[in-house]
Computed example of a mutant assay.
Amino acid sequence: MLNRFRSLATRIFTPVATVLLRLGVSPDAVTIVGTLGVAASALWFFPRGEFLWGTLAIVVFVFSDTIDGVMARHSGRTSSFGAFLDSSLDRIGDAAIFGGLLLHYAWRGDRVMTCVALAVLVLGLLVSYVRARAEGLGMTANVGIAERADRLVLILVATFVAGLGLGDVVVAVALWVLALASAVTVLQRILAVRRQALG
């Protein structure tokens, strides 16, 4: 759903990408710094329940996910390794975000929400794995109601709203929705691959 906004994001971040390239910064360096920033922010703020500051810090570093791609295209340095690195580090950032929320609920002793957060973490990784495995077999599995960008936006909106003082219930609802949507997406992708394999 959010992929339609990619061209807008490209126009917005092109000036930043141009400046970084002139300074000699590589796209891979931006990818790595962005991932480290997301992971550190999520694992520092979220377990402590500091959702507002955690979300704001994460959003700043998440922009690097767009900037590095713009830099690679403008510099002509797009490569298979760059794409591999970007995709792999995205998984680390996502795991840190949901891992931070898992720790938040675990430290509070909320077993149900700890399990829900764990389910979202595992299912989110599985959504990506199913697609990658399908593509490795020469098929496609880019279907589903909960792609990475959609999951990321939903949870960050929820943590931001919770951070404004509206309570953890917003985050809890978002996690339940993501658990269900991620499970459905995994099933949709498995069925899509099955159709192609048997077709």
Rank of each mutant, 00 (worst) to 15 (best):
M1K: 11
L2E: 07
R4Y: 12
R6C: 06
R6E: 15
S7G: 08
S7T: 14
L8P: 11
T10E: 15
I12G: 00
F13A: 01
T14L: 14
P15W: 07
V16L: 11
V16I: 12
V16F: 12
A17I: 09
V19H: 05
V25E: 05
S26M: 13
P27R: 02
A29D: 02
T31E: 02
T31I: 05
I32H: 01
V33K: 01
T35L: 03
S41D: 03
A42Y: 03
L43S: 06
F45H: 14
F45R: 01
P47E: 00
P47M: 00
R48I: 00
R48P: 03
G49C: 00
L52F: 07
L52E: 01
G54S: 06
G54Y: 03
L56N: 03
L56C: 09
A57M: 15
I58T: 14
V60M: 05
V60F: 13
F63M: 13
T66Q: 14
T66L: 15
I67T: 11
D68Q: 09
V70K: 02
M71Q: 13
A72F: 05
A72Q: 01
A72V: 11
R73D: 08
R77E: 14
T78L: 10
S80W: 13
A83H: 09
D86A: 08
S87P: 08
S87E: 00
D90C: 07
R91C: 11
G93S: 08
G93V: 01
G93P: 08
F98H: 09
L102C: 02
L103C: 06
L103M: 11
A106D: 04
D110P: 06
D110S: 01
V112Y: 12
M113H: 02
M113C: 02
T114N: 00
C115S: 15
C115I: 15
C115P: 00
A117S: 12
L118W: 11
V120R: 02
L121S: 04
V122Y: 10
V122G: 10
G124H: 06
L125I: 12
V127N: 15
S128H: 00
Y129F: 15
V130D: 04
R131A: 06
R131E: 07
A132N: 06
R133Y: 11
A134T: 03
A134S: 09
A134I: 07
E135P: 08
E135G: 06
E135R: 09
G136L: 05
L137H: 11
N142Q: 15
G144V: 05
I145Q: 12
I145N: 04
R148D: 00
D150F: 07
D150V: 10
L152Y: 10
L154G: 06
L154E: 12
L156G: 06
V157F: 11
A158H: 02
F160R: 06
V161M: 03
A162I: 02
A162C: 00
G163C: 07
G163F: 09
G163K: 07
G165L: 13
G165S: 10
L166A: 14
D168A: 15
V169K: 04
V171E: 13
L175S: 02
W176C: 14
W176E: 12
V177Y: 07
V177A: 13
A179G: 15
A179K: 00
L180A: 14
L180M: 08
S182E: 08
V186Q: 05
V186K: 09
L187N: 08
R189D: 09
R189G: 10
R189Y: 07
A192C: 11
A192P: 02
A192K: 09
R194Q: 11
Q196S: 03
A197T: 07
G199V: 03
G199D: 02
